[in-house]
Amino acid sequence: MDREARIDLAADYAASGIGDVLDALDRELVGLKPVKLRIRQIAALLLVEKARERYGLGAGAPTLHMSFTGNPGTGKTTVALRMAELLHKLGYIRRNHLVSVTRDDLVGQYIGHTAPKTKEVLKRAMGGVLFIDEAYYLYRPENERDYGQEAIEILLQVMENQRDDLVVILAGYAERMETFFRSNPGFRSRVAHHVDFPDYENDELLAIAEKMLEGQHYHFSESARGAFADYIAARKAQPHFANARSIRNALDRARLRQANRHFEAGMPLTIDDLATFEAEDIRASRVFNGGV
C-alpha cells in the first residue's frame, strides 16, 4: 500500500456528481436545515468510505438503512427520492430507483399470502431503495395473529443479508416510530441513520407556497401574500395540519376560487389576471371563519 499517496477528496466529490444532488436539495427544498446537514454528513461519510476502500482500508459494506421521522408533509418522500439519487451516484446502489410501499403492499390477507407478497416487493426494489411509509403499521401488537410480523421477519432477514442489493428507508411520525423500534429491536440495530424532519416555520411555509405557485405559473398579489401568511398562522392552530401538504391543498382550493371569481365577473381579462391570486381568493377560506 502506498502510504504516501495523496487523496484528493475534492476530485472524488466532483467526479461523483453528488454536488449537483446536494445543490438541488438546497435549492428545491425550503428549510429542513438539520435534514440537509445530516444528508451532507452521510454523503461525506460514504465518499470517504469509497476512498478508504480504494486504499485497502475498507470497513466492509456500510449499513445504509435509514429511518425518516417527522410529521406529515415535511418532505420525507421527496428527500428519500434525492437519497436514492445520491446513493446511486456514490455507487452504493446499482439503480437509481425508489419503490414506495405501505403496509398494504407487504402484508397479505390470509395465511401464506404475506411471504410471497413481501418477497415480490423486495424483488422489485432490489438494486435500489425500498421506502416503507408509515412503517409502524407493520406491527400491530393488539392482534397477536397479525400477519405483519411475518413481513417484518422477512424484511429483517433481507436487510441483514442483502445489504449490497437493497437500502431500506422506514418513514413515519416520530412518536409512533419510536414505539415501533422499541417493540422491534431488530430494526433499530439494523438502521444506521435516523433523520428527524422538523416542522416548517411560518415563513418557510410561505416560501414553499410561492415555490409551488411558481411551478404552476401563478403568483400572489401583494395583498394576497399577506393574506396567505395570515392563513398559514390560522391553519397551523387547527387540527390535522400537514405542513407542505396542507399548503398544497390550500393553494388548490384558492385556484378554484380564483377561477370562479374570474368566471362570475364576466369581464375581459389580462394574462396577468389569470396568473394572479388576489387577497379575496385566500380570505374566502373557511379557515378564517373557524372552520377546517
Partner: peptide, 12 residues
C-alpha cells in the same frame, strides 16, 4: 417477473 429493475431479484 415483469417489473424488476435489477437482476438481483431474479438471481434470488
Amino acid at each position: 417477473m415483469f417489473d424488476l429493475a435489477d437482476a438481483a431479484g431474479v438471481v434470488q
